[in-house]
């Protein structure tokens, strides 16, 4: 395939993605709840947790948490070792315990979009237009993937930015200045999370082409999301603990897995899945 053909192919896939994103943007009732979920995870929960840690002194619970986290922080960051108990706890909370939100929220966003990507076209009858169009199945598939991944990545970047502001404002005083994101978090967000999101979306879009209703697709998407979240939770911890090795290795493996999932998904995707069910008159 030459450059011009690839550019044209990408342009057409982007046309499919763009119309899905436009529909999503116009569906306030769809993204409204997702926005609330994002704000709860990226802003409300860390704000409350860190506010509690930094405002309540000499709490037995805080002391216990600080003791548990001492073991982790000593391996994590030299700067954390020199902090008082309150600062260490705040640092550990921000870096470790709230890490999975970086996975949960974008995965929720992407799976919500991806779940209805194909079956939604079929239910509405709009898939008929795509099926009769000169678009190749590869272009349609790529467009649907982009439309599912972009909101997830966008949620990651915006949420990550908000989260950074919240934890630095709330815990910066106790930790001794701007401390977040750490190197491990950069690796997690930019290298580890994207392939995991791609794996989940590839599986979900593929399932969306197989199920008979959006409701069923969403059920299945939640089943796919759960193990990915659990896996990512563990990996996030490892990547944050040892950013130089774990994140690079795990990220590389995840990229290979993502490429495999995407290729398998593309091969399984056929034009006729876009056509309405039960009206083969």
């Amino acid at each position: 395939m030459d450059n011009a053909t690839m550019t044209q192919s990408f342009r057409l896939a982007w046309t499919v993605a763009r119309v899905d994103l436009l529909r999503l943007f116009k569906s306030r009732d769809y993204w409204g709840p997702l926005l609330i979920v994002g704000l709860v995870f990226f802003v409300a929960i860390p704000a409350v947790a860190l506010l509690t840690v930094t405002r309540i002194e000499a709490s037995p619970l805080l002391v216990q948490v600080g003791e548990v986290l001492d073991g982790l922080t000593t391996r994590l960051d030299e700067r954390a070792q020199t902090l008082p108990a309150q600062g260490r706890t705040a640092f550990a909370l921000a870096v470790f315990l709230l890490a999975p939100i970086a996975v949960v929220v974008p995965l929720t966003v992407s799976s919500a979009v991806g779940a209805q990507s194909i079956v939604g076209e079929r239910e509405r009858g709009t898939g008929e237009f795509l099926a009769h169009s000169p678009l190749t199945v590869g272009q349609i598939y790529a467009g649907k993937l982009m439309a599912s991944l972009i909101p997830g990545y966008l949620a990651t970047l915006v949420g990550f930015g908000l989260y950074s502001i919240v934890v630095n404002v709330m815990a910066g005083g106790a930790v001794g200045g701007w401390f977040f994101p750490t190197a491990g978090w950069w690796a997690l967000v930019l290298w580890v999370l994207p392939p995991f999101l791609a794996i989940a979306v590839a599986v979900i879009v593929r399932l969306s082409a197989k199920v008979r209703s959006t409701a069923a697709a969403q059920q299945v998407a939640s089943l796919v999301s759960l193990p990915v979240i659990i896996l990512a939770y563990g990996i996030a911890g490892g990547a944050v603990l040892d950013p130089t090795r774990a994140a690079v290795i795990i990220g590389a493996m995840a990229w290979v897995g993502a490429a495999y999932a995407l290729i398998r998904g593309r091969r399984a995707f056929q034009r006729d899945v876009l056509l309405g069910l039960g009206d083969e008159g």
């Binding site: 436009l22 509405r124 709009t126 008929e128 009769h132 000169p134 009206d279």
Partner: peptide, 17 residues
């Protein structure tokens, strides 16, 4: 398909657009 124009039995469009 680039030479055909199709009007399906239930002309579905994207409702929110």
């Amino acid at each position: 398909r680039s030479r055909c124009g199709v009007v399906p039995p239930k002309p579905a469009m994207y409702e929110r657009l």
